[in-house]
Design a binder for these strands. Structure first.
Lengths: 338, 338
DNA sequence: CTGAAAGCGCTTACAG
DNA sequence: CTGAAAGCGCTTACAG
């Protein structure tokens, strides 16, 4: 293996000089610089990231630990887009993203400990639980972090935030504007901060219109749960005329279940989703939903972290607010497809 | 930061002994072992992976470079499940998965070069192109690799394979058994080996029944392309009575487009997908498709790679064959939902 | 079974 | 602007 030593010898300089040419931490004369670069190119040398990591105490890696069921991860579609967004920023600094999927709290703890012991310089926290133990754990491990989405105040870590409350309110306003009064909500898991918050936002929005926000069924973001929740709502005596789902997958499953029972959408039942996955625009009827820019979430999270690592005081970042996209599942008329 | 030095001192042994306790590469007396472990626990010490990486020339990391558009990655659902499968195996050996998303061939080359220079011990190759330059590049970089899915023979790297051809043949047989003769195919991108292979399998299966396999439209796995391909097929004079899609997302978009034109599924048009994403079972009609066990793909890929790194002669691994799942979109009768 | 020491391939004060 | 040398925190022959 060719090392910095070989390059230094070939260029007739010291190892330190070669290093400086690459880090740019101190001025190097153009002539020397050229000789070093030529030698490196000649020998096809690239600095070893392992050695560099040890010497600098930086691994140039961001950790992401996911504690979700693989199937949920898959259908949620959040994951892939988020990762792509984060990567697009990290790549500009040749930083990597180290992924870890865990299934027990012990595995999760171990994962963060191992990241803290040199595998990662910082981590991204997603899917915060109500009373999540991770922020404290990371503070304990002195591992810099950014929290994606809502987190309890005061936050020990900088956050990337978006105003979901406003989006939920827009959805409810839209339905009320169409004349709906019996509006139900199929929520995400209540243990999660985002599920909890969207649900609270729904309750508030209903209350603002003087409507009863009692029709809430808890789902888990899976198609299965969307279908079951819908069945329960449609079986009830006080059947709703509209259902607000916490994600598109549950909404699509609900929409199809309703149709299979002969319930017409949107005539008998209006339906809204959340996420705006690609399929949403290609259904019959197409799905009214809330567009979230997940790629931007990933990008911003990476930016906040990099700035943090650069020594800046960590600051929260805001994402452009989620946008209501009205389509046929609430509008009735064959609206333009987005 | 507490180091192996501190632990050695506290336990009254040499650094080498501490190291040996953890690696188990040589026998250590129970008494010494206990003293070391106690000291480590007391000091809350875990070996630094950075230092270990340099000393062992192993980073305990597998690389995965994705050259796809983030949106395609997201909807394909392959990615998240595959990663979860791979991770479940890597975690047992405390190995990490380093992710990289690139958008240009240059970025891709750089990504593999940087992985080869110490960031990863091996890589997983997915989505092989017809005439893919990567196998040669990796051989050049001496970076061990496993190829997921079909790859040209003879393969320079071990592969994880599954018999897609049989699955496509099952689909065609199923449709022919229902009396269909004008069967169309909406394929994946022809530049990809898997897209290419499934398409070839379709052509062969049709030929085996003495049917004309000319009705093939190329898609790109997105809902958008599924919809457009379907529109073209339904607009044609020789409209097919069945369409075989190369993935579920295109099939779902196609199904909904057909319905929006008043084409009844399955009465006027039978539809089949590929993947069996969670939504497939929750549509109206539910989608006949081919179930692929993507989590197993990830698991097997990781296993092959680990065995390779352990010094075993690399060998191809086979995944249980994909299975046809018959549902309402071809059966007509309200079949049992899976 | 254990210790002392060299080495992994870089970076970074310190001197000049 | 450049060099010599120590140091990052482990692992692993080599000796005993």
């Amino acid at each position: 293996m060719v090392t910095i030593e070989d390059v230094a010898r070939a260029a007739g300089v010291s190892k330190g000089t070669v290093s400086l040419v690459y880090s740019g931490k101190r001025p190097i004369s153009p002539a020397t610089r050229a000789r070093v670069l030529d030698a490196a190119a000649e020998l096809d040398w690239v600095p070893s990231s392992r050695a560099r990591a040890l010497a600098t105490r930086r691994s140039q890696t961001i950790g992401l630990v996911l504690a979700r069921d693989p199937e949920i991860i898959a259908t949620d579609s959040f994951f892939a887009r988020f990762v792509a967004g984060a990567e697009s920023v990290l790549a500009t600094r040749s930083m990597g993203l180290l992924l870890q999927v865990v299934s027990t709290p012990e595995q999760e703890r171990d994962a963060y400990r191992s990241l803290a012991r040199g595998r990662a310089d910082a981590v991204i926290l997603t899917d915060l639980l109500v009373d999540d133990p991770r922020p404290a754990l990371l503070a304990d491990l002195r591992l810099p972090a950014v929290v994606v989405g809502a987190s309890p105040d005061p936050a020990p870590h900088p956050r990337v935030l978006s105003d979901d409350r406003a989006a939920v309110r827009d959805v409810v306003d839209h339905l009320v504007g169409l004349g709906h009064e019996r509006i139900a909500h199929v929520s995400g898991p209540a243990g999660y901060v985002h599920g909890h918050d969207r649900r609270a936002a729904f309750v508030d929005a209903m209350a603002a219109h003087g409507l009863d926000p009692a029709l809430v069924v808890e789902g888990d973001f899976s198609a299965q749960s969307g279908r079951e929740a819908t069945a329960r709502l449609l079986d009830a005596d006080d059947r709703p005329s509209a259902i607000v789902y916490a994600n598109d997958v549950m909404a699509i499953a609900g929409l199809n279940h309703a149709q299979s029972r002969g319930v017409r959408v949107p005539d008998d039942l209006a339906i809204t989703g959340f996420d705006d996955i690609e399929l949403a625009a290609h259904l019959t009827p197409s799905l009214t939903t809330v567009q979230t820019d997940v790629v931007s979430w990933g990008r911003r999270a990476a930016e906040v972290l990099l700035r943090h690592l650069d020594g800046a005081v960590p600051e929260d970042a805001w994402i452009a607010p989620s946008r209501l996209v009205v389509r046929e599942s609430t509008a009735g008329a064959p609206a333009a497809r987005t």
